[in-house]
Design a protein around this nucleic acid. Sequence first.
RNA 1: GGGCUAUUAGCUCAGUUGGUUAGAGCGCUUCCUUGACAUGGAAGAGGUCAGUGGUUCGAAUCCACUAUAGCCCACCA
Length: 900
Amino acid sequence: MDKHYDAKAAEAKWYPFWENNGCFHDEPGSGEKYSVVIPPPNVTGILHMGHALNQTIQDILVRWRRMQGKNTLWLPGTDHAGIATQNVVEKALKKEGKRRQDLGREAFLDRVWEWKKQYGGTIVHQQRMLGNSTDWARERFTFDEGCSKAVIKVFKQLFDEGLIYKGNYIVNWCPRCGTALANDEVEHEPNHGHFWYVRYPVVDSDKGVNGQPYKDYVMVATTRPETLPGDTAVAVNPKDERYAHLLGKKVILPLTGRQIPVIADDYVDREFGTGIVKITPAHDPNDFLVGKRHALEEINIMNGDGTMNELAGQKYVGMDRFKCREAIVADLEAGGYLDHIEDLDNQVGHCYRCHEVVESRLSKQWFVKMEPLAKPAIEAVKSGEVKFVPERWSKIYFNWMENIQDWCISRQLWWGHRIPAYTLREDVGIGEAKVKGEEELVFVAESAEEALEQAKAKTGNASLTLADLEQDPDVLDTWFSSWLWPFSTLGWPEKTKDLEYYYPTSDLVTAQDIIFFWVARMMMAGIHFMGKPPFKNIVIHGIVRAADGSKMSKSKGNSLDPLELIDMYSADALRFSIALITSLDCDTKVNKEKFEIGRNFTTKIWNAARFLEMNTPAEGFGEISGELTADEKHILLATDKACKKLQSILENYRIQDGALAVYDFFWTQICDWYVEYAKDAPNKTRAFAILRDVFYKALRLLHPYMPFVTEEVAHQLGYLKDGQSIMRETYPLGYCEEEKAKWGLTEEIYDFVEKKREAITALRALRAEYKVTPATFVNVTIATDDVRASGEVDSLKKAMRAANVEFVSSGSDLPMPSKMTKFGTVYLSLEGLVDKAAESKRIATELQKLAGFIKSSEAKLANENFVAHAPEAVVAEARRKLEENKEKVAQLEKLAKLFA
RNA sequence: GGGCUAUUAGCUCAGUUGGUUAGAGCGCUUCCUUGACAUGGAAGAGGUCAGUGGUUCGAAUCCACUAUAGCCCACCA
């Protein structure tokens, strides 16, 4: 083996090997299955730390289950990401000086597909760098043919069930993207704004003054004066006596001269502002609802691009909304309507994609009725059929689901699944065929032909042709395809073998930030269309944050690039480190240095492997035979324990604990203790034969965390032949009862060796305390009655660097520095010089500390309740401890005299 | 305003149903390179577990309140 591990070479070698040899692939079988669908990253995306965490967790689970022998499928794919992708292509077009409108819909979509072909594979390649064992043969795209078919079918079914409707609604509108946004696509951010106090004259023709039909004003405060031309009322709280006299009167809308009513509505907060609100139904969601209640006119004064239209008044037409705000404020001031301006901190919504300030806008949109879908999805979690890991996320889920609102699914984009709804062209003239009470004839169908048949039937006009139909120009929200991901990717609506075998999937692993966007909606879709929730467990992990706890973002320059970390430290290092430092329960703060843990561990594994190789005879090892030493038994037991521990840890998704356990097992148990023992073992060949066995178990335990180095080492050490892969080896379960009996592996032996190590550590500490150089061989005496101790003289001498190790009975009391251990009291014979004063002082401190312990244990044991209620073992332990401490005190006091 | 979570060593975090003198990694201190590995080894210092009160024989752990921080949802015109 080379002196240094070449991670890059191993990664370049093994990933293609796995992929080309079908190591990631799975087909429906007859046994137990484990299936996971990846949260599809945006096709425009590049790999970030969030993906690295998310996918490392999944790959650990997937590789582990696969090694358990389950039929394991991890299905990869990407999301077409409507707005994001369209934006990217539009940006590219802009460089050519073109807009998408210049190309037209068809040509623009061709451009997007072209872009996807060229650049859409980026993240998919990057995922390979991580070592993801996804079944690439099954890679899917939310906008591929199969997924699109599923989307259309779902739309039609929901429409037929009355769960999809079209409505004139106030929606969040991004003027830059030119599309509606769902509520959760709007990010509210604090804003330092202003509160403009505006006087609206009260119409009071009887009492007019100076020839004007009014004599006083009402004071209205607004943060968005540009919407003023769209006002159709002012409202006060019905219980507000201050303004009771105004009810039923009208006020004059400044700058327009329009008269609008004063109405009463509970929505108005008496305490806020002036207690009088201008109502602009077309430009504010609350005002919209007020308008509905009072049958107010809805005046839309803004264009889709955020400029004002003619309804805003001639003067403002074509003006940008913020320019218009300034203009209107100036005009109000000039007209004497502006009373004063106050600073106001409020929240303003921004587009989650482009960060533009979002407008509320009245428009025709498609909606899904969510409540009927949510109910069974709530039940599935309440009943325990689907579990959140950690469990607490179910509370968040319930909170959202129980207050669910209808989902606006139409987007005014071109890139996405076009809404399968058709209307008759205006010039066709529905004429007498127009069905009573319907504003608009809409035909929802899986194809234009089907829609045509519907149109013919409904209108009775058999001569209609496809040319008479117009498809809704809007596309569907990207999540409308993502929510079908767990079954659309398995072939739905066809009844495929894959669907039957792999659905429902086993685990879904995702970050907390898309529980609503995605997880909850998948639950609803899975139950509604498949009759079963789409997964058994929802594993939620935190978000990767920068070292200071802030969110990573490119603009802040505080983000880490996983690819850079892979380049610097290796993929295994990235994976292991992130697994080790991430707890499922909270967000993870990372900095570059943390990834050294994984890099160092990789080096340690490599070097240990090299050492094993050096000590492997050319002819190999035979059977492990003869009476094993205590240390040999110990490592076998430690291995057994590690295997069992990993098993239960991974069953419970405790990825971090698993990393810690395997790290400790490998580093502490194997390298620090057992390898040190093996170097000087009485039967070196056997000691290394055991190491060889243990080492391979360790490699397999590690494999899900560090796939590359474990594969490389397994081959280097000859555990596997060419063409084989550790991926397909079994995950070790530990040693069977037969082996344990054969080798004499008992808990007593394990504990005995643990105690022996305690004695060794104690002696080393004594050496350090008394500044005994490593080159000095010391004389050690151990006071113990353990009959097994004498068998350990040689190993103790080596570990303690002792010229002699003697045993005396446990009652003995020697005038030498000592430490108490469970093995016995360890005495170090001091032949060299010792700083008596310093030693005396140290002893005094130690005595003080012990006195405290003794006091508290005596108090505890004197407590009748403790003795009566605590388990026997606990009481016995307390007694033992007390005795031990008392003994220590006696020792120290003796020693103190020695140094006095 | 509604909900959720956190607060343990200088830093980042473990601590599984309450039970020995609360742990790990990094950092720090001392010592150690012909040794598989200095990306290493040995030893060590460092914590009244945010605060107050309660339950209990016993609390980092359970309960209540307070403080601080963070997240999510809804929002003030």
